[in-house]
């Protein structure tokens, strides 16, 4: 979903640049609370993994492909603020080194995939965690649902930007239908990848999964009560 230069007009690109800069500034403050000696290397690796994962375009129906956006994945693994920064770092490297995503569109891409992608992913995940039974085995499926929602959410955000500042006069409802339709299908791929990756890490090292940590604390507490009762 990397927006190239030229899709959006200059005022809209400047506006998304401002939104992205403000978002990154807030995330830099928030990430301090999420990062310590153990989670900082993990966050660097999550960014690396998202960069790599975004290189794998998987085919979807009708000559289209999709690739991981990684916002929900990163948010659940390292926290929402750090997750948004992971995606932003990936987008900067892609724009500068790989010419993937425009330079003037960098703010747009950070807004869409970093802020909307990771933000929506985290909100859906946190909401589900509240509703579902507090079980470690539900972390990966909840992250998958969050991933599924995050992709059409980013597509919707692009459509809104295009409606305001698109450089071609195309009917908004046409763009909206096409964007939402295809990105819901791509979202299924996003959900599969996210569920598999988070499921694997939760199985081996649940303590390294930010979104699983409250459940770990609960589990330890449970073990203690049982041991106490058996005495």
């Amino acid at each position: 979903m990397h927006v190239p230069d030229g899709f959006l007009d200059a005022p809209t690109s400047v506006a998304t640049g401002v939104v992205a800069a403000a978002g990154v500034a807030v995330a830099l403050r928030g990430a301090r609370r999420e990062l310590d000696d153990r989670t900082a290397p993990m966050a660097g690796l999550v960014a690396t993994f998202v960069f790599a994962g975004q290189m794998i375009n998987f085919p979807v129906a009708g000559g289209t492909s999709g690739h991981l956006l990684g916002g929900a994945l990163a948010a659940v693994l390292v926290g929402p603020w750090t997750g948004a920064l992971c995606i932003s770092v990936v987008l900067v490297v892609q724009a500068l080194l790989m010419a993937d995503g425009g330079i003037t569109a960098l703010g747009t891409n950070i807004t869409l995939m970093g802020i909307v992608g990771a933000g929506t992913g985290w909100l859906v995940f946190a909401g589900l965690r509240r509703l579902l039974p507090r079980r470690l085995s539900l972390v990966a499926p909840a992250a998958g649902v969050a991933a599924l929602v995050s992709v059409p959410a980013a597509a919707l955000a692009f459509t809104l930007l295009f409606a305001v500042g698109g450089t071609a006069p195309i009917d908004t409802s046409t763009v909206l239908t096409a964007m939402l339709g295809w990105h819901t299908v791509i979202g299924i791929g996003e959900a599969v990848i996210t569920t598999l990756v988070i499921g694997t890490i939760v199985t081996t090292r649940p303590d390294l999964v930010y979104g699983a940590r409250p459940l770990l604390a609960a589990r330890e507490l449970e073990v203690r009560t049982t041991a106490e009762a058996a005495r």
Partner: peptide, 28 residues
């Protein structure tokens, strides 16, 4: 081994007719 088909956004841009608005990146 990745698919070389256009991704969702590029495909929609082709279908609905704004793909020609794309400008080459300064880092291209």
């Amino acid at each position: 081994y990745a698919s070389s088909h256009p991704d969702g956004l590029n495909y929609v841009a082709e279908q609905t007719g704004f793909i020609d608005q794309e400008k080459a990146s300064a880092t291209s």
